[in-house]
């Protein structure tokens, strides 16, 4: 048996990649340049696809391969390209100062990660057998952290595009949870979710473009005329 066929090796690889994904998420929180945020997101999605492929390999599950391929295609290639083009079109490069400054944001992200670990603790099943079937269960904490940090980033940023990216990274967290807990949803659901995601990004891109054209800015904190 080669070393890469050993489930323990797979488990270590998955843990490593999950850790990297978390680091990338915190990098996004601390990043001003929009192009960099898009690239970080692309790398994060690539790692996510790798995790999915690893789990698929050890469990011999073709539908997870499909999910991995879809992630790679959509989130690591198509969406970054679409968003980069949009960036050029609306001609914005840098995020203005967020509501909470970067150092404090990073500390908050750290605390959210801690919280996620506490939440994920209650899902641990010590009696579970180690083996391909339990592969990736320890990434649930990372998934919840991605979700929480993405949520925080959405509320903290002012630019419409960064909010979209925060939303996407939040969805990455959900995908990681789906993959690590249940080995993905049934394929039809998986395809539906990706289709929705694609449409959502196109819709949001058009909206961002129109906000830029109308308000001469994509600073969403200026969208505050409707009250009461």
């Amino acid at each position: 048996m080669f070393f890469w066929q050993d489930p323990q090796f797979g488990d270590k690889m998955i843990t490593l990649m999950a850790a990297l994904i978390l680091v990338l998420q915190i990098m996004m929180v601390a990043q001003h340049w929009l192009v960099t945020i898009i690239r970080v997101f692309a790398v994060q999605s690539f790692l996510l696809a790798c995790i999915a492929a690893t789990i698929a390999y050890f469990n011999n599950a073709p539908h997870i391969y499909a999910a991995a391929a879809l992630t790679l295609l959509l989130k690591a290639i198509i969406l970054p390209v679409v968003l980069t083009r949009l960036l050029v079109k609306v001609d914005i490069r840098r995020e203005v100062e967020p509501f909470i400054n970067m150092p404090i944001s990073i500390i908050i992200s750290g605390m959210l990660t801690l919280m996620a670990y506490v939440v994920a603790e209650s899902f641990q099943r010590p009696d579970e057998l180690a083996g391909p079937a339990s592969l990736g269960h320890n990434t649930l904490a990372v998934a919840i952290s991605l979700f929480l940090i993405g949520f925080f980033m959405m509320t903290n940023r002012r630019k419409a595009l960064t909010q979209v990216l925060a939303l996407l990274s939040l969805e990455n967290g959900i995908f990681l949870a789906a993959i690590s807990l249940t080995y993905g949803m049934p394929l039809v659901v998986e395809i539906g979710i990706f289709f929705d995601l694609l449409i959502a990004i196109l819709v949001l891109a058009i909206l961002v473009y129109r906000i830029r054209a109308t308000f001469d800015s994509t600073d969403v904190s200026r969208l505050s005329r409707l009250r009461g």
Binding site: F147, F151, M154, A160, Q163, L167, L170, E171, I174, A177, A178, L181, T182, M185, I193, A200, V203, L204, L207, R210, I211, T214, F215, V220, L223, S224, R225, L226
Partner: peptide, 28 residues
């Protein structure tokens, strides 16, 4: 296509998407 309609649509899209992502997590 008024500025206020864009504002309303942006809020709707963002709050709706975040909400639904929670629902997806719940479904999973």
């Amino acid at each position: 296509g008024r500025p206020t309609s864009l504002e309303a649509a942006w809020k709707y899209a963002m709050i709706g998407s975040v909400g639904l992502s929670m629902a997806l997590f719940g479904t999973i």
